[in-house]
């Protein structure tokens, strides 16, 4: 065959084979974007005003003021940190039975359904919404934040734990079961050793998340550094707000570094 006989164009086969569907999806996506972008009403006058505020915010960040509101900041940090510790511990303790119950290969159906419902409920709502409800029940303060973060931790940990348990090697469970072990012995000898390493990693990760969330539940009155930040911004004290944000970033970075350190030590 001479070279001229070969085709001189080539197109990559499209990702979506049917041309109708392809164009429908492209046009649909484009139309959605246009409509959605149309929902953004920009108030140019307010925006112009905002430029000045952005400038002051920026200046505030260049010269953070840790001292002016130090007692407020210290109280907020104290609440955030204690909230993180207590809610992580309680949340993980509660998530263990719920997680085992939400694993289809270990739990009977009624228990499974109840535990899955708890997980789904906890995961569907953003922490702040849960915090609003707890504040309404137990009043303002870090206790509401603690309850919120514990509840969120249960949903997070139980779901991942249940998935891990469902993924365990059935051969090992079979082997233990064939020795005539009881259900608790089965969990202890066949399930725990398989899920433990990842579980520890997840716990550390959750500490990290709980601290970050503890910084926002304060916005709705559930204690923590978020309340201090909200107040600082309301009073236009951008230098104090900057100080708070810097403290949050530093603590999150330190937590991340520490947890990677611990994980290496375990792994």
């Amino acid at each position: 065959m001479s070279i001229a006989a070969y085709p001189d164009t080539w197109r990559r086969p499209p990702f979506i084979a049917s041309a109708t569907w392809r164009w429908a999806i492209y046009l649909g996506a484009l139309a959605y974007l246009v409509v959605a972008a149309g929902a953004v009403d920009i108030n140019w006058a307010r925006l112009a005003e905002g430029v000045a505020r952005a400038g002051r915010l920026f200046v505030g960040f260049l010269s953070p003021n840790f001292t002016a509101r130090w007692s407020d900041i210290a109280l907020g940090m104290e609440e955030s940190l204690t909230m993180t510790v207590t809610s992580t511990v309680v949340g993980i303790l509660v998530s263990l039975p719920v997680g085992v119950g939400a694993a289809r290969n270990l739990a009977p159906l009624p228990v499974y359904l109840v535990c899955r419902a708890i997980v789904a409920l906890s995961r569907s709502f953003q922490e702040v919404i849960v915090a609003i409800l707890f504040v309404a029940m137990v009043g303002f303060g870090p206790l509401a934040g603690f309850l919120t973060l514990s509840f969120a931790t249960v949903g997070f940990m139980a779901k991942l734990l249940a998935e891990d348990i469902e993924d365990i090697d059935p051969a090992q469970a079979e082997a233990i079961r064939s020795t005539g072990a009881s259900w608790l012995q089965l969990v202890n000898y066949a399930v725990l050793p398989q899920v433990m390493p990842r579980l520890i990693g997840l716990c550390l990760y959750r500490v990290d998340i709980n601290f970050r969330e503890s910084a926002v539940v304060g916005i709705v009155g559930a204690g923590g550094i978020g309340a201090t930040l909200n107040t600082a911004l309301d009073r236009y004290e951008y230098d104090s707000a900057a100080a708070i944000l810097i403290i949050i970033i530093v603590i999150v970075m330190a937590a991340e570094y520490a947890s990677s350190f611990v994980r290496k030590g375990i792994g």
Partner: peptide, 17 residues
Amino acid sequence: LRRFSAADVRGAFATLD
């Protein structure tokens, strides 16, 4: 854009052949 020249595409087909 995967728009190679006609000579390149022809060459690719010939080589694959």
